[in-house]
Design a protein around this nucleic acid. Sequence first.
DNA 1: GTTAACGTTGACGTTAACGTCAAGAGACGG
DNA 2: CCGTCTCTTGACGTTAACGTCAACGTTAAC
Lengths: 131, 131
Amino acid sequence: MNTSPDDLDPMFSIAELAQEMDITTRTIRFYEDKGLLRPARRGQQRIYSRADRTRLKLVLRGKRLGWPLDDIREMIELYDTPDGERKQLEVMLRKLSHSRSVLQQQREDIELALRELEEIEERCHRQLQQN
Amino acid sequence: MNTSPDDLDPMFSIAELAQEMDITTRTIRFYEDKGLLRPARRGQQRIYSRADRTRLKLVLRGKRLGWPLDDIREMIELYDTPDGERKQLEVMLRKLSHSRSVLQQQREDIELALRELEEIEERCHRQLQQN
DNA sequence: GTTAACGTTGACGTTAACGTCAAGAGACGG
DNA sequence: CCGTCTCTTGACGTTAACGTCAACGTTAAC
């Protein structure tokens, strides 16, 4: 890992990120192609800042939630849209609202699934006792 | 919709289910191919019981959580595995435990995402006030 | 009896999300 | 200077989850 003089701004190679996140370099480049990442370059080579690393973590979180990459990109873009005009802000609020309802639906689904799993687990344990 | 004499056991056609769940009949047949559904038949035609309908709902819930169909099938099989032998029960408990940890990770991810969305939303509103 | 409406199987097409080479550029140690 | 490492782009392959289309059977209405 390469760092600037005072170690305040760590840099990462693609291989380092891949290892840390347990994905392949191919995947990382693919995400860049899809507009999910925009690392700096030193010549040809990519160098990733701490911010890039955070973005990548957001992407992976989106993946764990089963979101398509296009949706993840939209989601992430919400994070670093600085200050927009009124119209832009309204568009943004609609997207936020939509994302939230999707997340809430997912949360409901998860709570249900967890409760049902517990039921099954109990039945399972009772069966084991009986034997 | 076709029902038995006393209306205790409603039956559904593939088209009815498709319309209700807002998916295509092609999708429903595909799920059957993948072993997620096993509707009865009257001649060639499929007839779906209330239990089949419930299974399909479980499938769609799994989809909303971004699970691959193979995982969903495993998950669903946990529901209606009746009583197994000791070894089988232990396998089942391991699968249950795994499913639960996945769900818990997803729940965490969702809570984080929701909180971050709220932050962005607030910033957004403050911006609108300023204009 | 024929014509819709609905259902069936089967084959092939499509999209997303990568995996898998192949060929080459740049830096670095010996 | 040479070989080794790490990285690059580019092309093509692959898998999951369906969509699309063709050809055909069955049932209900007229």
